[in-house]
């Protein structure tokens, strides 16, 4: 379980998260959604330990983040964070990178070699596996970064825009199926930030909707529909929840043109 209690996070003088409390049960695929600039990445960064909030506590599986060396190490072993734009060592080969990431997470060597091979196959990178990363396209680098998160064996995955960064349809399809099966069959706990609702509609069990640095809703799709009274796709539900003025703005835009 990830529990956030009274989290407040400022960037300089600009508050991004204000007294935010949230408890996410495992195992689920939870999507963090909301308009731009509302604190989605900040929230993920706080959970991932990249940011230490000015106020509040982050608790993961009963351990408080950055409280003691042992607690933090245990959390780091079990939680892997993948930012939207990870930096990869360009002069290393994909295989070297994957194996070394596995090594620092203490994955047994025989399992790691086998897993790396399967990951390259999953993301159609078998040919490129022994090429230097600099020769990978953007999409291939994104796939490698996703593979690096999966090879760690960490049971909690925090992904910031995993479907972006030039990932091709095959990659998106593979990733969606892998994440779903990891959650359903292996009890993984997956947190995702994705800007496009249609990408996560059929993947996420729960949705955390953020607006103005606060949690507007933390519900399943059915719960969100019930909240809004809209029985349509997730995008319509979200539009109502987070930006009800969108359609009105469109009307105003064209009204201005016509007049």
């Amino acid at each position: 379980m990830i529990r956030l209690t009274n989290i407040t996070q400022h960037y300089g003088v600009r508050p991004v998260l204000t007294d935010l409390s949230l408890a996410i049960e495992r195992p689920t695929v939870t999507a963090i959604i909301g308009p731009n600039g509302m604190g989605k990445t900040t929230l993920l960064s706080v959970m991932a330990g990249v940011l230490s909030p000015q106020q509040g506590v982050v608790e993961i599986d009963g351990r408080i983040r950055r409280s003691t060396v042992d607690a933090e190490l245990e959390i780091r072993r079990n939680v892997v964070f993948l930012p939207d734009r990870p930096w990869l060592p360009k002069h290393r080969t994909g295989r070297e990178f994957l194996l070394n990431v596995g090594f620092i997470y203490g994955v047994a060597a025989d399992l790691m070699f086998d897993h790396a091979g399967r990951l390259f196959k999953l993301f159609s990178l078998v040919t490129e596996s022994d090429w230097p990363i600099r020769s990978y396209s953007n999409g291939q680098q994104k796939k490698l970064a996703l593979a690096s998160a999966l090879i760690t064996g960490a049971r909690t995955l925090i992904f910031d825009e995993p479907f972006g960064g030039g990932l091709d349809p095959a990659g998106i399809l593979a990733l969606k199926h892998v994440l779903k099966r990891l959650q359903q069959q292996h009890g993984y706990f997956i947190l995702i930030r994705a800007p496009a609702p249609e990408l996560i509609e059929d993947l996420a069990d729960k949705f955390v909707v953020l607006r103005q640095g606060k949690v507007v809703a933390h519900e399943s799709l059915a719960g969100l529909r019930q909240m809004t009274g809209i029985d349509g796709p997730l995008s319509d539900v979200l539009a109502t929840l987070t930006s009800p003025e969108t359609l009105e703005n469109v009307e105003n835009y064209f009204a201005g043109t016509e007049s």
């Binding site: 072993r77 930012p83 930096w87 060592p89």
Partner: peptide, 20 residues
């Protein structure tokens, strides 16, 4: 020659990994 220094593993692994 396969062992890469942790500091070279980029972002986020160089700084957020459990390696100590």
């Amino acid at each position: 020659p396969d062992r890469v220094p942790v500091s070279e593993l980029g972002w986020p692994f160089a700084t957020l990994s459990p390696w100590t």
